[in-house]
């Protein structure tokens, strides 16, 4: 028996919007610690990891670990039927092949039940080791979104370089090149506007902007985004989900050409 009651139902809606473009089908894993998801995109270049801790739910009951395969597009369709202020309750039976989303209006005068069929999904669960990252950049999420959007109109690859001067996003395309440099800036009125750069080691990696842009779908979830970079490791783009968890996107870097092009 599974019963999760989330008062701030809009969070779940935003979570779905932020991952459904990247992943079509995924298994939601429910355990006593929380509600989580890990899935790769179809080309196995990006990985999304979602965690909603049990403490974040008003009511969390999970008798036994349960993995529910869902089509995220369909799930998103159902969640769109919930109002932004609605309370969402996810219910499922052990061994059942459906999941029920219940939407309660804040005034309790409207209750909607949506039952969705589950599906069997063969998913590969990857172990993600904890790693020390060479550089960690925290910046306003809408700023990051804007940068990715702007750069993707110029080129298809962004090179993110962190040096002690700041973090540079650069791209090159047929029409020209673009460089956006952000400097550390912690003297701001609102802490979420700060740009914090922790650099242990300079790092420069290139990534496909297409994926970065799909990561920024999570921008509504959080005012800030944390980008962790390490050479030899996928970049981690993390958005906090309120106080209850996170969405982390992992993206494999593009392999730099090492060969010298001397003539």
């Amino acid at each position: 028996m599974l019963e999760l009651r989330l008062v701030q139902g809009s969070l779940l809606k935003k979570v779905l919007e932020s991952i459904k473009d990247l992943v079509n089908d995924a298994n939601f894993d429910c355990s006593s610690t929380g509600f989580s998801l890990q899935a790769m995109d179809s080309s196995h270049v990006a990985l999304v990891s979602l965690l909603l801790r049990s403490e974040g739910f008003e009511h969390y009951r999970c008798d036994r670990n349960l993995s529910m395969g869902m089509n995220l597009g369909n799930m998103s369709k159902m969640l769109r039927c919930a109002g932004n202020d609605d309370i969402i309750t996810i219910k499922a039976d052990d061994g059942g092949d459906t999941v029920t989303f219940m939407f309660e209006s804040p005034t309790q005068d409207k209750i909607a039940d949506f039952e969705m069929k589950l599906m069997d999904i063969d998913s590969e669960h990857l172990g993600i080791p904890d790693a020390e990252y060479h550089s960690i950049v925290r910046m306003p999420s809408n700023e990051f979104s804007r940068i990715c959007k702007d750069l993707s109109s110029i080129g298809d690859t962004v090179v993110i370089s962190v040096t002690k001067e700041g973090v540079k996003f650069s791209t090159a395309g047929d029409i020209g090149t673009a460089n956006i440099v952000l400097r550390q800036n912690t003297t701001v009125d609102k802490p979420e506007d700060a740009i914090v750069i922790e650099m242990n080691e300079p790092v420069s990696l290139s990534f496909a902007l297409r994926y970065m842009n799909s990561f920024t779908k999570a921008t509504p979830l959080s005012d800030t985004v944390t980008i962790s970079l390490s050479s030899e490791l996928p970049v981690v783009v993390e958005y906090k989900v309120a106080e209850m968890g996170y969405i982390r996107y992992y993206l494999a870097p593009k392999i730099e050409e090492e060969e010298d092009t001397k003539t």
Partner: peptide
């Protein structure tokens, strides 16, 4: 071809599977 075609796989694009091992 890869520049504009979003769906085209870039030969240089790394694979996430090469970084993380399956559990």
């Amino acid at each position: 071809g890869s520049k504009k075609g979003g769906n085209v796989k870039d030969p240089k694009q790394g694979n996430i599977m090469s970084f993380f091992k399956r559990v």
